[in-house]
Measured scan of single mutants.
Amino acid sequence: TETYETTDETEARKIAEELKRRGLTFRIERHGTTIRIESD
């Protein structure tokens, strides 16, 4: 499991693209301005 936290929408998108490219599944949670991406 890898966890990323960012407040930057663009960075979050880049992380999501990278995880997809590596064939990982992940979920995105939003907590206020923080975007949390957690891979399975």
Rank of each mutant, 00 (worst) to 15 (best):
1 T>C: 13
2 E>I: 14
2 E>Q: 11
2 E>L: 14
3 T>L: 13
3 T>M: 11
3 T>A: 08
3 T>D: 03
4 Y>I: 04
5 E>P: 01
5 E>L: 11
5 E>R: 04
5 E>I: 14
6 T>R: 00
7 T>F: 06
8 D>W: 04
8 D>I: 05
9 E>C: 14
9 E>N: 04
10 T>S: 11
10 T>V: 12
10 T>G: 12
10 T>Y: 11
11 E>L: 11
11 E>A: 07
11 E>Q: 08
11 E>M: 10
12 A>W: 04
12 A>Y: 05
12 A>I: 04
12 A>H: 01
12 A>S: 03
13 R>Q: 12
13 R>E: 10
13 R>L: 13
13 R>S: 09
13 R>P: 00
13 R>V: 09
14 K>V: 08
14 K>I: 10
14 K>W: 09
14 K>Y: 09
15 I>W: 08
15 I>L: 05
15 I>R: 03
15 I>V: 05
15 I>F: 08
15 I>G: 00
16 A>T: 13
16 A>Q: 11
17 E>T: 09
17 E>K: 10
17 E>Y: 12
17 E>S: 10
17 E>C: 15
18 E>D: 12
18 E>L: 09
18 E>W: 15
18 E>R: 09
18 E>P: 01
19 L>P: 00
20 K>F: 09
20 K>Q: 09
20 K>Y: 10
20 K>V: 10
21 R>Q: 07
21 R>K: 09
21 R>W: 04
21 R>V: 05
21 R>C: 08
22 R>T: 01
22 R>K: 06
22 R>C: 12
23 G>H: 04
23 G>C: 15
23 G>R: 04
23 G>V: 01
24 L>P: 02
24 L>T: 03
25 T>K: 13
25 T>F: 10
25 T>V: 08
25 T>G: 10
25 T>N: 12
26 F>W: 05
26 F>S: 03
26 F>C: 15
26 F>V: 13
26 F>T: 04
26 F>G: 02
27 R>A: 04
27 R>V: 09
27 R>D: 04
28 I>N: 02
28 I>H: 01
28 I>S: 03
29 E>L: 14
29 E>K: 11
29 E>P: 00
29 E>C: 15
30 R>Y: 14
30 R>M: 11
31 H>I: 14
31 H>R: 10
32 G>C: 06
32 G>S: 03
32 G>T: 02
32 G>Q: 03
32 G>K: 03
32 G>Y: 03
33 T>S: 12
34 T>C: 11
34 T>G: 04
34 T>P: 00
35 I>N: 01
35 I>H: 01
35 I>V: 04
35 I>A: 00
35 I>L: 04
35 I>W: 14
36 R>H: 06
36 R>T: 07
36 R>F: 08
36 R>K: 08
36 R>M: 06
37 I>L: 04
37 I>M: 01
37 I>P: 00
37 I>H: 01
37 I>W: 00
38 E>Y: 15
38 E>P: 00
38 E>Q: 13
38 E>N: 07
38 E>W: 15
38 E>L: 15
38 E>I: 15
39 S>C: 15
39 S>R: 07
39 S>Q: 07
39 S>P: 07
40 D>V: 14
40 D>T: 15
40 D>A: 11
40 D>K: 11
40 D>R: 12
40 D>P: 15
